[in-house]
Amino acid sequence: MADQGKVDPMHQFEVQKMFDMFHVGGHEVAFTTSALWMIVAGVLLWVFMIGGMKRQLVPGRWQVAVEGFTGFISSMMNANIGPEGRKYTPYVFSLFMFILMLNILGLAPFGLFGVHPFTVTSHFAITGFLAILSFSIVLIVGFWRHGLHFFSLFVPHGTPWWLLWLIPAIELVSFMVRPFSLALRLFVAMTAGHVLMKVFASFIIDGLAAGPAIGLGVGIPSMALMVGISGLELLVAGIQAYVFALLTSLYLNDAINLH
């Protein structure tokens, strides 16, 4: 914990061990706050989806909301990959909804009820795992469908013959960077947003500690900014989940419809 009257903006990202469970290959696996929030996200998602399972011809509000999300991802897959993308919709949909739920849960004001909120997607270990998963699926699908011909991905259409020594190298690097950019984008966006909010919050606390005049002078603009940034962070939570799903679908398109 930070010292009295001092806010450590990084403390919120610390994963707390709640209890030990078992050992695997010399590593200890524990139940953590991160695990707790992932389970909460999964359960909430499951409850949300149950509302869409009434399967009515004329849907109610909840069913429309669920079908809105499924339709959003299905149409994205259809637009980016085509009819063959339907097979991969469950994966991209799970990815999108899981990340979206974790992002929003991290922003939700649980602190008001004394619960310590935690943004799972602000951890490189988690975003990295999901990025490597997406990247592996792209590789497996690519080599499964096209065999060694998949390597022609590194030679885009219209490459002049005298650039054949350079373009594949650039394409290879950009291909190999994909999992890192995928993982870092989400992790950095989440971390930066939460740090920003903590910093503005600490301005208010430090200002008030310095006296009422400074407290009001600093606190009111900081609070106003916090309100704006909170809205912006909600937007970012949606956009980052969308970008992760969109890029996964685009990478899958490379593997499925090799030019």
Partner: peptide
């Protein structure tokens, strides 16, 4: 010691 193993285990399970 526990961090990476726990994170991967739980994300694997929940995802």
């Amino acid at each position: 010691n526990w961090y990476a193993a726990s994170q991967i285990f739980w994300v694997l399970l929940t995802f």
